[in-house]
Amino acid sequence: MSHHNASLTFSHAPNKHNAALSEKSLHEIQMQLMNKQELRLRYIQLMNDAQKILGRDEAIDLIKESEVIWEKLST
C-alpha cells in the first residue's frame, strides 16, 4: 500500500474523537443555558422581594439600576 492510499483510508475513517468533542460541547452549552436560566429566575425573585420590602417606587429605582448593571455584565 502506498503512502497516499494509507492517508486516504485514514482520512475517511469515522472520527470518534470529534463525535465525543461534539457531545461534550453540547453538554457544556446545555449546562451554561441552565445556569443562565437559574440566574434569571433568581434575579426575578430578588426584584419581587425588593418591591415587597422597599415599596413600589424604590423597587423601580433599584430595578432600573440593576438592569443597567445586568446589561454591562451581559455584554
Rank of each mutant, 00 (worst) to 15 (best):
Q45T: 02
L41F: 11
Q30V: 04
K16V: 13
D57T: 15
M34P: 03
F10C: 08
A50S: 14
A19S: 03
S74A: 14
D49Y: 02
M1Y: 02
Q51S: 08
N48L: 03
H27M: 15
L26T: 01
D61C: 08
K36L: 11
M34L: 11
I44Q: 01
H4C: 03
T9H: 12
R56D: 06
D61G: 07
S22D: 10
D61W: 07
E38K: 01
Q32E: 11
E23Y: 12
E65T: 12
I69P: 00
K64W: 11
L54F: 09
D49V: 04
M1L: 07
L21R: 03
I29Q: 01
S66T: 04
A6C: 13
R56T: 08
I63L: 11
Q30S: 07
S25Q: 04
A20C: 03
R40F: 02
M1H: 04
S74E: 08
I53R: 08
L62F: 11
I53W: 04
H4A: 11
L54H: 12
L26E: 01
M31T: 05
L54A: 13
K24E: 14
S25E: 05
T9G: 10
P14I: 05
I53S: 10
M1C: 04
A19C: 00
A59Y: 02
V68W: 04
S2D: 09
V68Q: 11
H27C: 14
K52Y: 05
N15T: 03
R56K: 12
N18C: 13
S66M: 04
L21H: 00
M31A: 13
A13V: 04
K16N: 14
H17A: 15
L41D: 11
N15W: 02
E23Q: 15
E67S: 07
M47R: 14
D61R: 12
K16H: 14
T9L: 15
L62P: 03
D61L: 13
F10P: 04
M31L: 10
K64S: 15
D61N: 11
H4R: 07
E71P: 02
S74V: 07
K16Q: 14
D57L: 12
A50N: 10
S66A: 03
E38W: 00
L41C: 13
K16W: 14
S7C: 00
D57W: 03
Q32A: 14
K72D: 04
E38Y: 00
I60D: 09
I60K: 05
V68I: 09
E65K: 12
A50W: 10
H4E: 09
M1S: 03
H12S: 07
K16M: 14
S74K: 12
I60V: 05
L62G: 02
L8R: 06
A50G: 11
S2W: 06
